[in-house]
Write a protein that binds this DNA or RNA. Structure first.
Lengths: 234, 234
DNA sequence: AGGCGTTATCTGGTATACCAGAGTCCAGCT
DNA sequence: AGCTGGACTCTGGTATACCAGATAACGCCT
């Protein structure tokens, strides 16, 4: 009885079996394949064959089907009985809708961040723009593209609301490609970076409603932009 | 060659096979069972047995498992390998988070409704409060509870953004019970109904930002209320 | 009696076989 | 030639069998 049970979180072992079930593996493989594929480049629909996927992944249809069920639920794929499962092409309207939803969630996160985040956390937003913080973003468009997405994700995480984080991350998967494209159109990049600076200032000053409004307007701006320039989507 | 092909929507046949796959059937059955069950009444976790469910539903495990996958994805159940699948009890914190997300989405819907809905549609919001429109809601608490939820759903549908509608309907499934309970606590009902009136007025006047703010504040009020009175959740 | 290892059993995960509807293709009739 | 119809094939949907980890039950040893 001399030994004392140690609280398990003092260990925090890294799991032996790095990940998990075949279903999860299949899910990640398929999701990666779908998001990396340039869906909007090609004209025809992309069809996925359960049996072929099983062979390629080296597992049976069962875990593949379960992975496809999740992807269908997330809106990446649509399954028609006895016809096939197809990669979904979002319409421009749907993408604009997603950006609206995103704007709503991110603006709420910004409000919550003002109440919940530490000064240091809020300040850390600036670090996401290392060199081109103010400058000619069009010269660093690729890095800025990544930074841009990290910036918005950071705001959402600072809101410390798991539901909002989850919903947003799903939306992001669908919109990621479009966000990057949009930055290269018109003066979107310059406009975007200026608004980011404003947002950071409002957050640091903990002006919750102001920050909330700025984030929302920023998102709505993107939605309007896509609505104008996004005809390549259909 | 004398016959002319008739446009099919002049017929509008009701489909022979009313609904769809066993998986869908199982999903609906399970979802209904879960949402009707009073999860927060009982202390212990509720476990679901795939095999038992299969027998009770009269189908094999396969469609049941697929239904459970969807329910897991929606956050209603959690499946632990070789241990069982359990109905999830949301913590108070999670529910408050859901209400925050809901408030964000609904307020955006209100803004969009101001731009997109017709006068008649906006006016129709009033019809949701037939008799107790202004009065003693505490005397009609059950009817008001339903009307309350319909009211919020209506605002969201008037926003005409499918993404927001889908995300919200999922959140609603989780929060429905709590919304009704909250109305019975403190002066929540009276407060709620007054705010509804304000919201309708702002919408009818197409004051987008005002309506948006009112809806958001209304939602945040509910979140704060649950945070105060919702200890029975844990 | 109490601790411990072994075994029986129960559970979700996976593999596989079969089913039926939808699509395709071609023979055969008009 | 053009349409029709039936057989063949391809696909997702469903049922079933088997697997391995986790748990519980039990009995042995001390």
């Amino acid at each position: 009885m001399g030994a004392v049970m140690v609280k398990s979180d003092q260990f925090n072992i890294t799991p032996i079996v790095a990940s998990s079930s075949l279903r999860t593996l299949a899910y990640e493989a398929l999701k990666a394949a779908i998001t990396n594929m340039d869906i909007y480049g090609r004209a025809e629909e992309v069809r996925l064959d359960e049996r072929k996927l099983s062979q390629d992944l080296g597992v049976s249809r069962t875990p593949v089907r379960e992975a496809l069920t999740v992807l269908e639920q997330e809106g990446f794929v649509r399954s028609e009985a006895r016809r096939g499962v197809f990669v979904i092409k979002k319409t421009k309207k749907e993408i604009v809708g997603m950006i609206h939803a995103w704007a709503a969630l991110e603006s709420m996160a910004a409000r919550l961040a003002c109440e919940r985040a530490t000064d240091a956390q809020l300040k850390s937003l600036r670090e996401i723009f290392p060199e081109f913080y103010e400058g000619r973003p069009s010269e660093h468009i690729d890095e800025y593209s990544d930074a841009n997405i990290r910036f918005h994700q950071k705001i959402i995480s600072l809101g410390q609301c798991e539901v909002i984080e989850d919903l947003s991350s799903n939306l992001l998967m669908h919109v990621r490609g479009i966000r990057n494209t949009a930055l290269r159109q018109g003066d979107r990049a310059e406009k975007s970076i200026k608004e980011h600076v404003q947002i950071i200032k409002a957050l640091e000053a903990r002006q919750a409603e102001h920050a909330e409004n700025l984030v929302r307007e920023h998102g709505l701006g993107l939605a309007a932009h896509v609505n104008t320039y996004g005809d390549y989507l259909e």
